[in-house]
Design a protein around this nucleic acid. Structure first.
Length: 429
RNA sequence: GCGGAAAUACCCAAGUGGUGAAGGGGCUCCCCUGCUAAGGGAGUAGGUCGUGUAAGAAGCGGCGCGAGGGUUCAAAUCCCUCUUUCCGCGCCA
């Protein structure tokens, strides 16, 4: 979310940014919100004046009553009552316009970083760098579900019975592998100086509407019936929610946090749940990183964050590449974003396993995340987030890249301590 | 889950409808004093919005006493809903 003052003084810049994101349909919103802003400030000024008058007169009434001058008091009362309707109407309009402004400001995209490549959609994202050799072995790599089934590691039939499409039972060594990856990811991030968090898995609607739009909420969030609670779609929801309306002492920055949580998503909308597979599902688990820092440091942290993910995957012998989101593929709140993609030897292409974002001060402005300097002055923090790993999806890459010809799975050295020393997951009898 | 009590500033805390939300501690500045302690004086309601401006300055104004509504000429104060904390009981991995 942009600062309305910034928009007011730089409307052309904001429009140019909208064009660069190929959202021309939003162009009229800029002038519209400028007009609304004018109206709001007008109404506010008039309202303030009326309120000041009411306040002063009410005090006079008190004085008159104390002195016993009842008639004068009554006359004054009538005056204040008379201005009541005007004020009520004004206040209503004020609130209405304010709400409208907020709605529009939430839709006008954040100013993208100068380094973001211009492009319409994800087909124009730009590859930054590859890490590791994308190998295609000379034996066939089966679909990941088939690999898992051969290892007796998944039961989707039962999951459909108990929970429906988009759920899974992981079992045996695959379930253990899943947990091992998360534990390893946790320690990996702790070793890089991040603080480990296990957040609430349910949050109040107040927090949900803070971190996403109503449309997103409808399409993603599961609501608990009869409670004002929603299942989180990512730990970012509770981790950023934690900072809503807070003023942080500057000396405590940066906050570098890594959180684990299950994630629940309805996945209504453009993509639907995968019929067969664990690529897009209603429930998964994820290790995440969150950084809250000074504005001048956010780009450095951005680099640190995505490199963490790359390093993590490399220690598991999975080739990855990073892909920079072009302007059109960048979510409205983001200044800059990179996808980390893992190699799929079966599909002979890379696929998304993580997403690293710098939100600049937009999220902080929307949620009231401020920093107080030693001298007492305040500014908005910058926020960033990135996936460390989301195992069910990453298992696809893991299994495909570490599959032996006989169907067994190599366990990379880094992971062995978390698998009880196991070097290979053997084919089930 | 039930019953009771509570929520005011950095901390403690007064305030049951009426002019500027007491008082104390702490903190900041000043005075006094070989130094320190003690003492004296001044300041200290965050935050946010508007106005103002070269400016995120000064000044002025609105809102603001856990949050949101309501009653009233006027609400920290009265009413309703919610949240949180403490105490007691119940339930529970």
């Amino acid at each position: 979310m942009l600062d309305i003052k910034f928009l007011r003084t730089n409307p052309e810049l904001v429009k140019e940014n909208i064009r660069r994101k190929f959202q021309d349909e939003k162009l009229p919103l800029v002038d519209e919100v400028i007009d609304l802003d004018k109206e709001f400030r007008n109404a506010k000024l008039k309202g303030d004046q009326l309120r000041a008058e009411r306040k002063a007169k009410s005090k006079q009434i008190g004085g008159l009553i104390a002195k016993g001058e009842k008639e004068k008091a009554e006359a004054l009362k009538a005056e204040v009552t008379a201005m009541g309707d005007t004020l009520t109407a004004l206040e209503q309009r004020e609130a209405e316009v304010d709400q409208k402004i907020l709605e529009i400001m939430r839709v006008i995209p954040n100013i993208i970083d100068a380094s973001v490549p211009i492009g319409k959609d994800d087909s124009e994202n730009v590859e930054i760098e590859r890490y590791g050799e994308p190998v295609v072995p000379d034996y066939e790599i089966p679909y990941h579900i088939d690999i898992m089934e051969k290892l007796k590691g998944i039961d989707q039939v039962a999951a459909r019975k108990t929970s429906g499409k988009g759920f899974y039972y992981l079992c045996g060594n695959i379930a253990r592998l899943h947990s091992a990856i998360l534990s390893y990811a946790r320690d990996f991030m702790i070793n890089r100086g991040f603080t480990y968090y296990i957040p609430p898995f349910m949050i109040r609607s107040e927090v949900v509407t803070g971190v996403m739009s109503f449309a997103e909420m409808e399409d993603m969030m599961y609501k608990i019936e009869g409670e004002d609670l929603y299942l989180i779609g990512t730990s970012e929801h509770s981790m950023i929610g934690k900072f809503i309306d807070t003023i942080l002492p500057e000396k405590e920055l940066p906050y570098t946090l890594t959180s684990y949580s299950p994630c629940f998503r309805k996945e209504v909308g453009a993509h639907t749940v995968e019929e067969r597979g664990v690529y897009r599902i209603h429930q998964f688990e994820k290790q995440e990183m969150i950084v809250v820092c000074k504005p001048e440091e956010s780009m450095q942290w951005f680099d640190v964050l995505w490199k963490n993910t790359v390093d993590f995957f490399r220690t598991l012998d999975i080739p990855v590449r990073t892909l920079e989101c072009c302007s059109g593929d960048l979510a409205d709140l983001k200044v800059k974003s990179l996808d980390v993609e893992a190699w799929s030897p079966r599909q002979k292409k890379y696929f998304e396993v993580g997403s690293c974002s710098n939100l600049g001060d937009a999220q902080a402005r929307r949620l009231g995340i401020r920093v107080r300097k030693e001298d007492g002055t305040k500014y908005l923090a910058h926020t960033l987030n990135n996936t460390v790993v989301a195992p069910p999806r990453m298992l696809i890459a893991f299994l495909e890249n570490n599959l032996n010809e006989d169907g067994s799975i190599r366990i990379p050295e880094a992971l062995r301590p978390y698998m009880g020393g196991m070097e290979v997951i053997p084919v089930a009898e």
